[in-house]
Every structure is written in structure tokens, then in C-alpha cells.
Write a protein that binds this DNA or RNA. Structure first.
Lengths: 337, 337
DNA sequence: ATGAAAGCGCTAACAA
DNA sequence: TTGTTAGCGCTTTCAT
């Protein structure tokens, strides 16, 4: 096994001490321009690469970020990609961790316990789970959340669900719909809460009374979406319900599955809008009216904010919350009544 | 900053030397059962967690695996998830790296240069690019490839494209199709090569002459798929071409886009089959006939093999190649002629 | 079976 | 500005 080139070799080759070489590497001050250049040249000719592990051990900086989310959801995969691309610029690495849906707090802690990170990117399944939150509050690292308002954490990066859901509801209202179902996830997470808030506001601003029964919450899976949809079918058939707005991409798949199963069509039998654009939704016939957001950019933004926290820890929790804008794109999945 | 519990504390608390403690932690031999238990108890009561960085520094083992692929493709995202879940079992971490499409070799090398890994999971964009392969051959780590036959690397995990593509072509042949287009990616990568081989074999086993012009290759993007499709349109209209088999999910999106744009329908105007199942393909009407493979399990398998190489380096390159089976699922996107 | 001690490659404190 | 040195927490010889 061929020995690696170490800082000692560079010191020897350049004729300076290892301290000076270290300073040159880390572009710390206290090195004359001339020396720095000579050392850099030595590094170049020797092909020296600092041992990242040894650096970490001494400096307690790891250039490593943990990503907690279910990457099999293309949305999180895109966010991960965006974040990785950004972190890479600064020499940081993104490490994946899939915490399922149970014992989330424990899993996160035990993941972090045996590994070293400088920061965390996180999408927690619930905001008000005290067990999870207790775990989160024990983490002594900057954490940037994805679309979650976790009481024990500073605000992270969020999507502007409110404006576009409101636009969408208003659009349906204008088309004459009144029996509008809102399908979201757990009511204790931001996307659902913001969606519901927008739903309420849209109705009341139009002086309409809300039927709370029309607000459905499940979990972010197609199975859950399908189940909710099937329960809705009788009301769709008797025209009590004429439109559905889904707040989640995966649930929307389930809705479409349910429609197919029940031989229902949109927009004839029910009008449809969903959150999160995709090639699928454009390819379906008719193409689906959606709320879109720039997902990969979200990842970039998340990484940027986290890096700021890592580099200036005193800023943690003091930065203004950042919200990603959304876009309401009308296609052909809604009809006027 | 509260000091961490170190191996010294455990040594002190248990009354043994740090060497013995270390041996107990690593379950190396040379520790009596009684001592081991006492030490384990001390570790428990103190809540000691070995410093993974210090361990790495001494042992040159990092419990870290690099994943090179474009995770914005849901297929790779799923593979990454499967691999992560498996690696996690053994305390290993999966770190992401997105190498785009140019300077791939350099990017991989520079990523690996400044970080420490025990192994690599890789999907290279080409198999015969000497620059990439030169880079790959310089990597002194076990590498498991995803569906690639890279000359300078041992075989990794592959999918059985051959059998199912053959089944698919035979199916189309039986339906009376002769103008069957095969759309794949770069001819220098395994999936395309295997697809073409199956295509050839299916035709010749049926004593049919192949029109090489019907084998189209592009890149794995929807844009490329669409472009190829649009070129095909005249022949579809004059019935020279009656069926298309796409070897890639992303390209298939492009084909569907093209169809939509040209107001063509399947299976009326052209029969369609694609590789890689998804909810989309089942929701489209009519649902699309596909070749399916268990993607997440692929990730698991990849991780397992890599772990074997990491734990027993002498096995590297000596294990039998592993091939993931595929399934041909007939739905309603092909009609008889 | 166990302890002592060297040293992995680096940073940071201290000296010069 | 530069060199020297301690020591980060651990594994691994080498003694005992």
C-alpha cells in the first residue's frame, strides 16, 4: 500500500513547517504571500490532498450534511439533488437517511449519534409529535426543515401553499363549484394547515359557508388518496361534490386510480386540481390543472440557508423565513358548472 | 461545550485499559467474556459512542459509500433508497454525488479525492469512453455498477433486459407487427445493447429480416425521446411503422408528448411498449404494456454485493454477476394488425 | 488476557 | 511570519 502524501511531505518539500503549510491550506492569515505561493506550488507538484478525516478530527468540522426524507418520493429526490449540487460547490457532502414513519425521533437520533455532520435537512412526518420534537430539540446542529413548522426548531424553507390554493379555490368557485373537497395530509403539518387556511379564506371572502366535512385528511400515499376518494364517490355521483383539490402528488395518484376503478372521468364527473406538477399530469388527457413550484431550486435554497447557518452559527434561527413561490397553472381538468 | 465521553472514560470507569476497551468495542478477540461484559456495561452506563471519525482515521475504514447517479430520475432515487436502507443496517452511510454528463471522469475522481469512502455505486453514462474509464480504473475502491458493462471494472448488478425485450418483441410479432421500432439510449451501454440483441434474436428466430433503420438510439431524456418520435411520425402515418418499444422511462415520456402533439393515439395509430413500470403508465388510458423490474430491491442487492466486497476485498471481481429478473406485463397499448 | 505506548494527519496554541 | 509541539480519539503493536 503506497503511503499517502501528508502535510509533512509538503512541509519538507517546500522547506516550511507544517504549521505554516496548514495555515496556507486553510487560507488562514499569518502567511506571507510569497510563502503561500511556494507552498501551493509544492502542494501542486506533490499532488497533495489534505486528509479530510484528519482535518475533521481536529477541527470538529465534517463538511457533511444529513438529509432526512423519503427519497422515493420524486419531490424529495429533486430537492436532494438541488441540495447536493449546491453543497458540492463548497466541498460538502450530502448523506441520505430514510426514516420511515415510526420511531422517527429515535431513528434520527441514532443516525446522528454514530456519524458526524455539520447540519441537517429534514422533512418530519408530523409537527406536533412530542416524541419526535423532543428528539429534534436534542440535536445540537443547525437544522433546515422542508415545509414544516416545528415548534422546537427555527423556521426552515417553506412553499407558499396559501396563495396558490386560494387561487385554485377561487377559480373553482368562479366556475360555479360549491361542493369542493380539499384532500390533504396530516392536519398537523404545514402544507395541510396552509391549504385549509386558504380554503377557509377563499370561501369566507366569497361569503360562502364552509362544510368542514369536505376537508379530508389522510397520509401522503396513493393508497390513502384512493381510500378517501372512494369514500367520496357517492357524493360525486349525486353531485354534492363537484370538485377535488389534492394537496399532494402521491395522494393524487390514488385519486386517479380510484376514478379509473369507478369508471369516472374528469372533468365530466368531477373537476380536479392537484399540487405538484409533473410530466404525468401534462400527458394525461385531459391534462391536469396544477399548482407548481420549482422543486430543485428549493433544494438549492435549502442548502444555501443551511450553509449560512453552518458558517455563521450565530445566525441560526435569526434569518427571515424563506418562502418559495408557487404558480397556478390552468389546464383542462376543471369544467364550469 | 460539554466534553464528549471518550474511550478513556470507559477505560477508567470499567477499570481496564483503553486497549482492552477498544478490543471489546470492535468485538476483536483477546478479551475474556467477563471483561467484555463489564466494559459493555460501562459503555452502557456512560452512554459512550465511539467517535466514528477517530475510528476512521486509525482504521482507514469509513463506513461510507458514494453513490454516483442522477437521482432526479426516479429509478435511481429508488435504487438509492434501497441501497441506503441496506447499508444503514451495517452502520454505513450513503453519500450522493450527481455527475452530470460531461467531464464525468474528472468529477468522480475529484469527488473521491477529497472524501473517504469504502466503496462506490455507479451508473456511468457511457461504457466505452476512455477518459471515464481511465478515471474509473484509477479508483482503488470496490465499485458496483448499475446496468453497465465497463471494461475496466468487474461486472456489477444488471437487469435482465434481454429476456423481456425478446418477449415483448415476440408479442408484437405475434400481433402481426413488422415495422417495430426499438428506441434506446447510447449503443455503448448495456441496456441498449441487450435490447438490440434481443430484438435481433427475436426477429431471426422468427425468420424475419431486420431493418436496422428501425433501431434508434438517443439519450435517456424525454427531449431525446420526443425528437426521435417526431422523426418517426411520417412512417407511422404511412403504416411503415406500427409499433414502438422504448427501453427507457424518460424517453417514453417524450414519445407520449410527441404523440399528444401530433394528435396520435395508441394503440390505434401505433402500438406502444416501454421499459420501467410506474403509476403513470397504469393510469394512462389505455394503460401501457410494460417491462417491469423490482427497482428498490435492485438497490438492496447492489448494497449487499458492495458490502461483501468491502468486507472481503479478495472477493472483488470474483463473484458471479448478478442479474435482476424482469417481468413482461401486457396491458392495453398494443393492438393486433 | 491485559496494559502501555506509538502514531494516524491534522489544527491550534504557543514560542521564537 | 514562521516553527514546534500538544493532542483530537482511536487502533494496534509490543510488552507483560
Amino acid at each position: 500500500m503506497k503511503r499517502n502524501i501528508t502535510i509533512k511531505d509538503v512541509a519538507h518539500h517546500s522547506g516550511f513547517g507544517i504549521g505554516t503549510v496548514s495555515r496556507a491550506i486553510n487560507s488562514s492569515e499569518g502567511v506571507s504571500q510569497a510563502t503561500r505561493e511556494k507552498i501551493l506550488k509544492s502542494i501542486e507538484t506533490l499532488g497533495y490532498k489534505p486528509d479530510h478525516i484528519a482535518q475533521s478530527m481536529r477541527s470538529q468540522k465534517y463538511k457533511n450534511v444529513a438529509f432526512f426524507a423519503d427519497i422515493s418520493n420524486p419531490v424529495f429526490a429533486q430537492i436532494a439533488k438541488g441540495a447536493q449540487l449546491e453543497l458540492e460547490q463548497l466541498g460538502y457532502t450530502l448523506s441520505l437517511c430514510n426514516v420511515g414513519d415510526k420511531d422517527v425521533g429515535d431513528k434520527i437520533l441514532s443516525f446522528l449519534e454514530v456519524r458526524k455532520f455539520d447540519g441537517v435537512i429534514l422533512s418530519t412526518p408530523r409537527e406536533d409529535d412530542w416524541k419526535i420534537n423532543k428528539a429534534l430539540s436534542e440535536i445540537e446542529l443547525p437544522i433546515v426543515t422542508i415545509n414544516r413548522d416545528v415548534p422546537v426548531l427555527p423556521p426552515g424553507i417553506t412553499t407558499d401553499y396559501y396563495s396558490s390554493v386560494k387561487k385554485a379555490i377561487n377559480y373553482l368557485l368562479r366556475l360555479g363549484h360549491r361542493g369542493i373537497v380539499l384532500i390533504g395530509g396530516d392536519k398537523g403539518i404545514r402544507p395541510t394547515r396552509e391549504g385549509i387556511r386558504a380554503y377557509h379564506d377563499a370561501f369566507s371572502e366569497n361569503n360562502l359557508i364552509i362544510d368542514e366535512e369536505l376537508i379530508k385528511s389522510g397520509v401522503f400515499t396513493s393508497e390513502s388518496g384512493k381510500e378517501i376518494f372512494l369514500d367520496l364517490c357517492p357524493y360525486i355521483k349525486n353531485k354534492k361534490i363537484t370538485a377535488i383539490l389534492s394537496l399532494n402528488n402521491q395522494m393524487f395518484y390514488g385519486i386517479l386510480q380510484g376514478m379509473k376503478e369507478k369508471n369516472l372521468n374528469y372533468p365530466e364527473d368531477v373537476s380536479l386540481i392537484t399540487f405538484e406538477d409533473s410530466e404525468l399530469l401534462q400527458l394525461l388527457s385531459p391534462p391536469v390543472t396544477v399548482i407548481r413550484r420549482p422543486i430543485q431550486e428549493m433544494g438549492t435554497k435549502i442548502a444555501k440557508v443551511l450553509m449560512k447557518y453552518i458558517q455563521e452559527p450565530e445566525l441560526y434561527g435569526k434569518l427571515d423565513p424563506d418562502t418559495i413561490p408557487t404558480e397556478f397553472i390552468i389546464r383542462d381538468s376543471c369544467k364550469a358548472i
